[in-house]
Structure formats: structure tokens, C-alpha cells
Simulated assay, not measured.
Amino acid sequence: MQVFIITALLVHFVFLISIFDIYFTSPLVHGMTPQQTPLPPPAKRLVLFVADGLRADSLYELDEDGTSRAPYLRNIIEYKGNWGVSHTRVPTESRPGHVALIAGFYEDVSAVAKGWKENPVEFDSVFNESKYTWSWGSPDILPMFAKGASGNHVYTHCYAAEREDFGAEDATKLDTWVFDNVKSFFQSARNNQTLFSKLNEEKIILFLHLLGIDTNGHAHRPDSREYKDNIRKVDEGVKEISAVLEDFYGNDGKTAFILTSDHGMTDWGSHGAGHPSETLTPLIAWGAGVNYAQRVASQLFEDEFLKEWRLETWKRQDVNQGILPLEYLNSSGHFKAESMFANAVQILEQFKVKMSQKKETTLSFLFSTFK
């Protein structure tokens, strides 16, 4: 009996240790050789709108009278760009969601638990690889992508933390602040030659973090007037910013736009778990290098969303966060092949570093490679 108890305790101890080894150890490694495609990209600049806490169905569905609460984005789906559902992963929180979108990997739990603004595990991101990145929005999100970036080329414009009042009557003002400041930024750039020159460089990223929908969802729930009106406000803001950029760059056709979300929200105004209302987020892309809208006779999806959203005839292309969505690219087969090759080599470089680390920490007679 005593042997049985000791064995049982030992087994449970091993199981407990394994949880920390599997889930609380960073999957990241460092020291890989950076990879990139040798071909010029189709866009000079990227504008990334992230509507925090926006559910896919809340954006795509029609109101009771059959009209869209996001008419500008609906028009893009039907005429100008590609759309689909972006499938997020647990935990459906803002930090890991943004890391997946901007850094291209699922962040380990230890990083989520150790704080939002600090980076307990250093990681690279598309912002760090840009020539310049300007971002506007929440002080909880923007700093973690600027911290640790090489050089001084990731700029943040944050509102005061006191503005994030989850008990406020209406949090739409958070998004209005972002849109107003972006418009003022481009107006001032016309009279600032240094800034004007930077904005006309290659590899520019503009990141607009829109927290109002998430805040209104927590305070009033996704079926509330505040949540739905905030979606309308975001749609209007995206339209305004698109017009400002087209005017600033003289309609040069070199701007790519993406609107998506980091996570969704349950009917009762929470997120963090794996319910479809939390993991299904919208993805709409248009502009330079992005395929045009495609009409189809029929589509096969296990869910009934296409019929509910009345988008059966517009090709829906779902993606998983962190995976290169080739279907969205309007580029040559050569460019797509080079992109896939660079992605594959990048994974191989990571494997080489991981194997080297494993070899160094394993007894030589226990280490063997597969053929």
C-alpha cells in the first residue's frame, strides 16, 4: 500500500511538472538567420486597423431592416477586397491576440501572466522589420511592440490610461481619439518635410488600435446599442482614414489595408475562453497586393454564417492567425512561391536552433536524429 501511494504521488508530481514544462516555457528561440523574399513587395505601406473585441458576426450580419451597420466595409467585401473569418486561439485576450497578428506566433502563457506592457520574452515583429511604424491607441497595447525594437523607428501615440473606463456610458470616444489624431498627424506632415519624407519611404506601417468596441462590449454586452453604434463609428472612421491616405499619397495604389480583430466576445460581455463567439473574428483586406472580390456560385462551410450574413455569393477565405494566407495575395506565382520558400526556410532555421539547443542539454548517448 505504501509503495502504491508513493508511486501515485510521484506520477502526479511528474504530471504537475510537465504542465509547467509544456505551457510555461517559451516556444521561442533566438539566433536564426533572418529570411526575406528577393522580390519587391506589391505595397509600399500597410494600414492595420484592429477593432479590439469585434465579433465576426457582429460586423458581417445585417440589421433588422436588412442594412449593414458597416456599409463601407461591406462595399469593400462586395467590390474591392477579400474577406473571411480569422480563427484565434485560447487565451482570447488582447495581448496574445495582437502578438499573433503582429509577430506571427502564439505567445506562451508565461508571457501573458507576467504583464502586458513588458516583454518577458523578446520577440521580433513586423513593426520591428518595418522602415517606420506609427501607431495610435491604447497604452496597454502599443508599448509592447515598441519596447525592444531595434533602433528608433517604432513610434507610439497613446491616450491617457484614465480614458479606458469600462464603466463609461459610451467608449466610442476612444476610437474617435485615434481617428482624429491620425487625421491631424497627416495634416501636420504636409508642413513637416522630415516627417513627409519618412512617410514616403518603403516599408511603412500605420497601426490603429481601436479599443472602443471591446470596452463597450464589456460594459453593455455585444447586443447593445452602444456596441453596434461603435461598429458604425469604426466603419465611418476607416472610410475617413482611407480617404485621407489616398489624398496624401495621390492615389498611388501602393497602400494595403487590413481590418481585423484580436478576439471576439461572448453574449454576456466576456472573453478569454474558446467559445466561437470569442475565437471567430472578422478579416477584411483590400488595396495594393490584395485580390479583388470574387463571386462564386456556392461555398462549402460547416457553419451557417454565409446565409445569415447574406454573403453566399462572395468568396469567403478563412485564415488562422500566424499562417501566410496566399489566397489573399494578388501577385504573380513567382512572388507567392518565393514567399512560401522564405517561410519554409525560416521554419527550418528555427528547427536548426532548437535541435542545437536540445543536443547541448542532452547526454550524447541519448541524443539521436531522425533520418
Score class of each variant (00 low, 15 high):
L174V: 02
A160R: 12
Q187H: 14
F185N: 04
F166W: 12
D165H: 06
F186V: 00
A168T: 11
F166Y: 15
F179H: 06
K183F: 08
A160C: 07
Q187M: 13
A160Q: 13
T172C: 04
S184L: 14
V182S: 06
S188E: 15
A168C: 11
T172A: 10
A161W: 00
W177L: 12
A161V: 09
A160Y: 08
F166H: 12
E162R: 06
E169Y: 05
C158E: 14
A171Y: 02
T172P: 01
K173T: 11
Q187C: 11
N181P: 06
T172N: 03
F185G: 01
F179Y: 13
Q187F: 10
D165W: 01
F185M: 08
H157P: 01
F179M: 08
C158G: 05
Q187K: 14
T156A: 09
A171C: 07
W177T: 09
V182C: 05
A171I: 02
N181K: 08
T156M: 14
S188I: 05
F166M: 11
D175Y: 03
L174D: 02
S188A: 15
V178A: 06
K173P: 00
D170F: 06
G167M: 07
D170K: 09
D180N: 14
A160F: 12
K173Q: 11
R163K: 14
F186R: 00
E164A: 10
R190W: 05
T172F: 00
K173N: 11
R163F: 13
N191G: 15
T156R: 10
A161H: 06
F179P: 01
H157L: 07
F186Y: 09
N181W: 01
N181L: 03
V178I: 03
H157A: 13
F186C: 00
W177F: 14
F185W: 07
A160K: 12
G167D: 15
K183E: 15
L174M: 08
A168M: 09
Q187R: 14
E169P: 02
E164I: 10
A189R: 03
T176Q: 10
D165N: 15
G167C: 05
K173A: 13
V182W: 03
T172L: 01
